[in-house]
Amino acid sequence: MAEIRATPGRGWVESVRRFFDGDIWYSFTRSPMTMAAGAVTFLYFFLAAFGPWVAPHDPFDLASITLLDASLPPAWLEYGDPRFLLGTDIQGRDMLSAIIYGSRVSLLIGFASVILSLVLGVGLGLISGFVGGAVDAFIMRVAEVQLSFPSILVALLINGVLRGVLDVQNQADLAYAVLILSIGLSNWVQFARTVRGSTMVERNKEYVQAAHVIGISPALIMWRHILPNVLGPVLVIATIQLALAIISEATLSFLGVGLPPTEPSLGTLIRVGNDYLFSGEWWITIFPGAALALLVLAVNLLGDWLRDALNPKLR
């Protein structure tokens, strides 16, 4: 189909205008499901960013927590307290606030680990696809070996090793780093394989040959020419991986090798609440679980939509 002439853009105002006039934004506005997913994701991001200001309580402020409020059901049930919309846990912490703080932690770890696997995967994929030969064979064999294990298993393994090496029990901050490393290192393969494939296509295109003829160094060609052209699919994978990373974090935390209950993520909240599921205090685990499911679903839907919107064949 004929391309539609765009007016030459100047400055960021023009860029923003072009984005909202573009096909991607158009396909976004045409899909109610995607718009809902976008709204939910945005809400989570907003809560995560401004948690301390929007949460009704500070679940970590020991001074404000009293055991008198412990195990209150959600506000709309009998014995519910309007101060605690989603009820409280057995220590009297507000569940809604705990979930907001938990989402904050989950998103933080999710993002950080996706960025880690993205940088690692894109870098290795670029080198693998561009250099080829033995380097490519080595990187790809490592990737395949890692891929043959479930990624949660790899994450557990890395987690175990790191916990053995580092003194995690005494340094809560390290728990973050260990989680990010173990999730990040277990998910780079997807990025590397995709980027390698696109790189091998781009490498043989004439604009890359033109850069060779000019005498641009291979490193600069990778960085300036090929990288910008292979990032489209990376964005899609990153979105879907974000959902997976959040799940991984929750799984690790649920298994007890994630964040300690003093700094609960959604996974920790579920694990802690799980103990009381059958003693009647279902809300302690169900609400964090629902919050996790909603977040992951929304991010996943966004990823699906992005994949379709960026694929010229499906447009």
């Binding site: 295109k205 004439e206 604009y207 040959q209 033109a210 003829v213 000019i214 005498g215 020419h225 910008p228 052209n229």
Partner: peptide, 18 residues
């Protein structure tokens, strides 16, 4: 290299789209 340049066949692939 400065003295020796090349023009390619495919006008769609020979310019970096980004």
């Amino acid at each position: 290299r400065r003295r020796l340049q090349m023009i390619f066949q495919d006008p769609y692939a020979s310019l970096n789209p980004r």
